[in-house]
Nucleic acid binder design. Structure first.
Lengths: 240, 240
DNA sequence: AGCTTTGTTCCGTGACACGAGACGAAGCGC
DNA sequence: GCGCTTCGTCTCGTGTCACGGAACAAAGCT
């Protein structure tokens, strides 16, 4: 029951978009009658909503999701630094954490110019295709990098790095520099520079990044800003 | 089953804080054995987490909650204007919508100075005690105001307005001015100015506000900024 | 009008949710 | 250290309610 309900809700995840009953039945593989009953119950709870024949995730989930402590605490501590970084660069700024072999974005702020990025708050992307992911990899246990490199390396664009040897080099460069770079590996025309955020334990608990149109990518100017913001946040997390 | 699970999750809502098993059983009124079984299932789904004996809301809820379309779309459209408003004022900025007789905050951004406010993203407060709430009231159906004024008026601080007649006056003033004011009605020492955001239909679908320490409240300087941001967002929502 | 697809309702069957109770494991006072 | 209380976990017999096939209703489509 719970499992079926969770399955039903999670099948909204990739797009979040509106789905019809039959569509949901097809996506989940559950019988139509079952989906119908479940959806009705979930709507009564405010976990789903519908307008006409279209089901969508409901407002109660927003309430619950906003209160998830691990995420909320990090976001709240980070927000001022993300603001600083945004003001300094006026570009799209990300905050992400690791979850398995993926990066989950906790916050993303931007101005009126919206880049065509696949990153979404609450959404996940491969560690290996993003600046935030590479920064996290570079400052986590070495065995994590081994694990990730052992598996198949996903590809988001033709520029995504799928050669393990080359990726290892890139991660090692990030370790030395304290910064990770990404060029059109997640979205065409977008480059990115990221810095790790350290927790009290010393390892990277998050990373933040600035994504800019490839044409106006000036690493020398972005690097100090990203590093400053990341170090400032690290200091606060360390309990300052 | 679903209902019990939802009940269990929602009992985290006020604080979100960590709870122990016995505490959860007491809060929900469910038998300990039942809570134990439910919690185990919810953990398997990633909807709950635990560290030691402490249960917390889990990361999956964050993922799901971030994808709730009604909220996400509004947030995404509003973010650039919220940034503008923050940069113009350098004060805490809110975006809220109405849900019943409450305002639910969809976004809140601030710098390093954090005001002691009760507002939380995903959290709700009474319409009558907040700037955002009054702006929403002033530009919704008149019958909504009647309903709200008919019920008991909650109080968050000694300055909260609990006299229906006085509140009606205040709402009418907001209608004329196109702006709502709030002075220490939600938190002591904090004042606030809010403006409605209009949807394609013409009614207020949201409102945004700036909250500042009472000592540095300069309405004349904040008003144009808030109004500008709200009108800009309204224009985008109207499909520009 | 006839056909196809989608959404809703019914209902008999059986799986599994339920929770009292027993048990083990911590914490606490002395 | 030792009884005592409190908390967390596990078991198991009972009965409920989730399940989904199938029939029905309501839209779309041609």
């Amino acid at each position: 029951m719970l499992e079926k309900a969770a399955f039903l809700l999670e099948c909204f995840l990739p797009t979040g978009g509106p789905f019809r009953l039959t569509e949901l039945a097809a996506r989940t593989g559950l019988p139509k009658a079952t989906v119908h009953r479940l959806a009705a119950e979930l709507m009564a709870l405010g976990w789903l909503e519908r307008s006409g024949p279209h089901y969508r995730l409901g407002g109660k989930l927003f309430e619950l999701g906003s209160r998830v402590p691990r995420r909320r605490e990090l976001r709240e501590a980070a927000l001022p630094f993300l603001q600083d970084l945004f003001e300094a660069t006026r570009e799209t700024v990300h905050l992400g954490v690791r979850e398995g072999h993926q990066v989950v974005y906790v916050e993303r702020i931007h101005g009126h110019d919206v880049l065509p990025l696949p990153s979404r708050i609450g959404g996940s992307l491969p560690l290996t295709c993003t600046g935030v992911g590479k920064a996290l990899l570079a400052f986590s246990d070495a065995e994590l990098t081994d694990e990730v490199l052992a598996g198949p390396l996903p590809r988001l664009t033709p520029h995504s790095i799928t050669d393990p040897a080359r990726l290892r080099t890139v991660v090692e460069q990030a370790q030395v520099a304290g910064l990770a770079y990404e060029e059109q590996e997640a979205a065409l025309g977008v480059s990115c520079i990221a810095a790790p955020v350290f927790g009290p334990g010393g390892g990277a608990v998050a990373a933040l990044s600035v994504a800019v149109p490839r044409a106006s990518f000036r690493p020398a100017q972005l690097a100090p800003a990203v590093r400053t913001a990341a170090l400032g946040l690290s200091r606060v997390l360390r309990g300052g």
